[in-house]
Structure formats: structure tokens, C-alpha cells
Design a protein around this nucleic acid. Structure first.
Length: 508
DNA sequence: TTCCGACAGTGGGGTCGCAAT
DNA sequence: ATTGCGACCCCACTATCGGAA
């Protein structure tokens, strides 16, 4: 199959707003792709590369060669070039990669170049990724989409699942089983503003667990072999020796556990997320790093124990099995209650100890691998500040032509100026986007680079955020974590906005 | 007919490793 | 030594479609 066939379908999918229409278009293409190229086609049309990453991003694609007039590239040829690009390492590799990128794009038409750029930068923007592709595979193969989804959560890579479905139908999909050493898509949580609201959603008794601000881990053990995976199924076994040792000491040797690793201070309080993240990301000199910043692990779920899959069991039963297999010191603290007052007190205590919040879990739900099911609901405290808008950036995609990402500043009483604390584009409705575009064009002040519009610092905005972290990027040395817009405040002037001192007091 | 679950999109700050400067 | 880039940790929120109620 030619790349142009895939690029054309992608554009047609992007033009189609109906999801069923997108599914029909994708299924039609899957129906005529050769088996040998099915993985590549599925991969490209769900916005990922078979190579996963090849070391080429937005910056490397700035100036491309002139496009061809006639489309001749096959999927196999593109895949081969991407494979060679990925294989470049060591001195001279950047030039070699650049040459191969030129070769790839020089063989492509304008339409193909556009598709490849979006594919390589991870911005396909056709309104269809895994979720829609699952349905398309189901339709093209005749297998129920639930079977496709189930196979995906166990295999972790849709092209392999889709290719199997197209070749062998439902039977091939059923052959995918939980396999120790191969990560399962982790279950995710929804969120609620308070524990009371979360309990109400679940209805009746629920389990409340500490939410630790670390790195999610899935630990596998087969015999003495241990492997550890992240939320996106990357292998980080070598970076977390403490976890590997802890799992080796467990009495069972065929298991998959779900948990969190986190760096704790000697007094048991958590280190800032940045400390845990830096430790886990470091691959060099791990032995020395673990002396200075040891990691602790806390498990909260068991997907497999003693060779038995537990995914389909209700939470309460999985947790009973977990607490039977794992010592208390490795278990995430947990309280089972139906009483909102008791739940809120538990939440307050967890926050007082410096942790991120709680996860409220329904005792009945099975492990919904890969889904953001209603069985788990996270609750975190929320801070707010009244800040001043210093500048705005033009949006992209569906926000093209709208001023979108706003720069946030706190008042500095010493200088009478404002100190930037970060940016946000979250929490804006279409109505608000339209309003702020007009408002900030009126307030525009000073030079613009065509991207950022600086404004007179007069507009106050109420911002919600999770916390203040240390920053080397901003002049105040601090930045807001997960900032989002709550509302514009026209009842306050910039002189009444919150100060950097207020923000600094939240840093400790 | 209305409601709501699932998805895709739009980006945020911080960190590491690697190659180039 | 420093800088630029790619990749991946953490993530919130809104709009939309289409099946469920």
C-alpha cells in the first residue's frame, strides 16, 4: 500500500466529524491493506510509530525538501527509513538522521509530507486515535470491540492486536493473555472535588487510599526475574533497584502488582515530586543515587498472584489477596468506610502529612485496565490565587485564531511590577476564548513576535492550581503546578492581586 | 428526548540523556 | 561546560459524539 492512501484516508477522517463515519473510513482501509503492512497502517492511522520514537521532533522538521509531484512511496519504504533513522546513534548521528529525514521527505508529496510531520510530532489531529481505531479494527475484522479492547490492555500495542484480529478474528484476539514480563495498561482514576462527592458517586461503602505524589509502577515477577514498568509501559527496572529487591523478597514468585514509588524524607514526609522524578529518571550511577535519595514503594493492587489472574475480581477481593501477599510496610494505607465525615477526616490527615490526596475506590469494580473508570476517584486539595495576565499566546488546532495560553503574574510589592509564575490554557470555554481574544487585543502593548501578545497588566484572573514548585525557568524561582482558569475577575484591580510573598509562603 | 461516558485535543512544568557547540 | 532537542514523568480541562436511560 502507498503512503498516499493512508494520508488521504487520514485527511478524510479529519474532515468527518461523526465518529461512526471515521470508523467506517478507517475500517474500509483496513479491509484492503495487505496483511504484511497492516501493523504499519494501523500504527500510522492511530497516531503512533511502530518504532515508538525515532529521535525526530518538531524542531528537526522545520525546513523540508521540495515535495514530489507523484506519490510513489510504499508503507514498507517509509517504515524502513524510520527504522534507519532510529538506528542512528553516537557522534555524527544528528547529521546522519538529518540526511535520512531529507531522503524520507524528499520522496514524499506535499500531502504525504504534511501527514508525516503530524505523525512524527504526535499531532495527527484527525479526531481518531486508539479509541476510534479499536472500533475500526472490530468492524474490519468482524470481532466485537470489547475483544479488541481486552487484547489491547493485555498486549499494550494496538497494531499487533489489530493485525492479529484481521488475520485470525476473535480466536486470535482471545489468544492474548496476561503474561508476566509484559505490562498491562494500568487502570486510571476520575476526579472529584471532595471525598464526600466521591463517596456519593460510588454510593455506599468505599475504600480510601493515600494518593502518593510519586511515579506509578507495575511490578512483575517470574521466578527471580523482576521487571518494573511505568504508566506508559516503559521499562524502568534498572532505575529502581529498591523496588526490585522488595519484590524479590515477597513469598510469591509469579505476580503482577500495581503501586507507586516515591522518595520519602527520613521523617517519613514526602520529598517534592521533582525529587522523586529526578531519581527515577536517572539511569547513570543509580547505586550512588539511591544512597542520597532512597525510593520507597507502596502497592495498592494485585493483578496476578501465585500464577492466578485477578483482573476480573472485585477490588475488595484483589486487595485481600494483596494484603495477604505483601507486608504491611509495602501497602498503601487504606480505610474502608461509607461515612463522609470519617472520609473527610482521613483526607485531612493525609494532606496534613504532606501527601497529594486520596483515591476513593469502589469495592465492587474489577481492574479496568487502560480505562478511566468510575471505580477509582481521586481527590486532591485545590489552591486558588488572583493573578494578573501579562501576555497571551495564539492558539493552534481548534484554537487557531484565538488567544489561548495566558501568562500569569503575581504582584511584587517591592517593585510595583509583576513576577511571572507560569502559563495556562486550561479551563477555558469557547465563550471565554472568544471573550479573552477580544479583551487582550484591546490591551495589547509593546512588540509582538507574531506568537506572543504582550498586554498591559490590568486584567485579574482567578487561577486554581495544585501547588507551587521550584523553578529555574521563571524569575521568581517558583512556578505553579497544574494551573487552570476558574474565572476572570472584573471586580478586582491589578493592585489587589495576590503577591509573590503569598505564593512563596505556599512553596514551603 | 435528555443524559452521560468515553475520547480527542490543547497544551502546562520539570527532568534526564545525548549530540553538538 | 553549556545549549538544544527529544522523550517521558506528572497532569486539568472542555467539546463532541453516540449509546443509555
Amino acid at each position: 500500500m502507498l503512503l498516499i492512501d493512508v494520508a488521504r484516508v487520514s485527511e478524510e477522517v479529519a474532515r468527518t466529524s461523526a465518529r461512526l463515519g471515521k470508523i467506517r473510513l478507517l475500517a474500509e482501509l483496513l479491509g484492503r491493506v495487505e496483511r504484511a503492512e497492516a501493523e504499519i497502517a494501523i500504527s500510522y492511522l492511530s497516531g503512533e510509530l511502530p518504532q515508538r520514537q525515532v529521535g525526530v521532533g518538531y524542531r528537526s522538521l522545520r525546513d523540508l525538501p521540495e515535495p514530489r509531484q507523484v506519490a510513489t512511496m510504499t508503507l514498507g519504504r517509509v517504515d524502513d527509513l524510520l527504522e534507519r533513522i532510529k538506528a542512528q546513534t553516537g557522534p555524527g548521528s544528528q547529521a546522519a538522521r538529518r540526511a535520512l529525514v531529507t531522503e524520507l521527505f524528499g520522496g514524499a508529496t506535499r500531502q504525504e509530507q504534511s501527514f508525516l510531520v503530524r505523525l512524527l510530532t504526535g499531532e495527527l489531529r484527525q479526531g481518531a486515535l486508539d479509541g476510534v481505531m479499536i472500533e475500526a479494527i472490530a468492524r474490519a475484522s468482524g470481532a466485537p470491540s470489547a475483544e479488541v479492547r481486552r487484547a489491547l490492555t493485555l498486549r499494550g500495542w494496538l497494531p499487533a492486536v489489530g493485525s492479529a484480529a484481521l488475520t485470525g478474528g476473535v480466536e486470535a484476539l482471545r489468544a492474548f493473555q496476561v503474561e508476566v514480563g509484559r505490562p498491562v495498561a494500568p487502570m486510571l482514576a476520575q476526579s472529584a472535588p471532595t471525598v464526600t462527592a466521591a463517596l456519593e458517586k460510588i454510593g455506599g461503602e468505599a475504600a480510601l487510599e493515600w494518593k502518593l505524589d510519586g511515579i506509578r509502577v507495575q511490578a512483575h515477577r517470574s521466578g527471580e526475574v523482576v521487571a518494573v514498568f511505568t504508566r506508559t509501559l516503559d521499562d524502568i527496572t534498572a532505575q529502581v533497584p529498591e523496588l526490585v529487591e522488595a519484590v524479590r523478597e515477597l513469598p510469591y514468585d509469579d505476580l503482577i502488582l500495581d503501586g507507586e514509588v516515591i522518595a520519602l524524607r527520613p521523617d517519613g514526609r514526602p520529598e517534592p515530586f521533582q525529587v522523586t522524578a529526578a531519581r527515577v529518571a536517572s539511569r547513570t550511577d543509580v547505586a550512588r543515587l539511591r544512597e542520597a535519595t532512597p525510593l520507597s514503594v507502596f502497592f495498592f493492587d494485585a493483578l496476578r498472584l501465585r500464577g492466578k489472574d485477578l483482573l476480573d475480581l472485585p477490588d475488595a477481593e484483589r486487595h485481600a489477596a494483596l494484603s495477604d501477599a505483601v507486608p504491611e510496610s509495602l501497602l498503601t494505607p487504606r480505610l474502608v468506610t461509607a461515612d463522609p465525615a470519617e472520609g473527610e477526616a482521613f483526607f485531612a490527615e493525609v494532606v496534613r502529612r504532606g501527601h497529594e490526596g486520596v483515591v476513593v475506590k469502589s469495592p465492587q469494580t474489577p481492574y479496568a485496565a487502560g480505562r478511566r473508570g468510575a471505580g477509582w476517584i481521586k481527590v486532591k486539595p485545590r489552591h486558588t490565587l488572583d493573578l494578573v495576565v501579562l501576555a497571551v499566546e495564539w492558539g493552534s488546532g481548534r484554537r487557531q485564531g484565538k488567544l489561548s495560553n495566558i501568562h500569569l503574574g503575581a504582584r511584587d510589592p517591592e517593585t510595583g511590577g509583576f513576577v511571572m509564575l507560569g502559563k495556562t490554557f486550561k479551563g477555558l470555554t469557547d465563550e471565554l476564548l472568544a471573550w479573552q481574544t477580544e479583551r487582550f487585543l484591546q490591551l495589547a502593548d509593546g512588540p509582538t513576535d507574531g506568537w506572543t501578545v504582550h498586554v498591559r497588566p490590568v486584567q485579574v484572573v482567578e487561577i486554581a492550581f495544585d501547588g507551587v514548585q521550584r523553578s529555574t525557568r521563571y524569575p521568581g524561582g517558583m512556578a505553579l503546578r497544574f494551573a487552570r482558569v476558574l474565572r476572570y475577575r472584573d471586580d478586582k484591580t491589578a493592585a489587589e492581586a495576590d503577591t509573590v510573598d503569598t505564593v512563596r509562603s505556599l512553596l514551603l
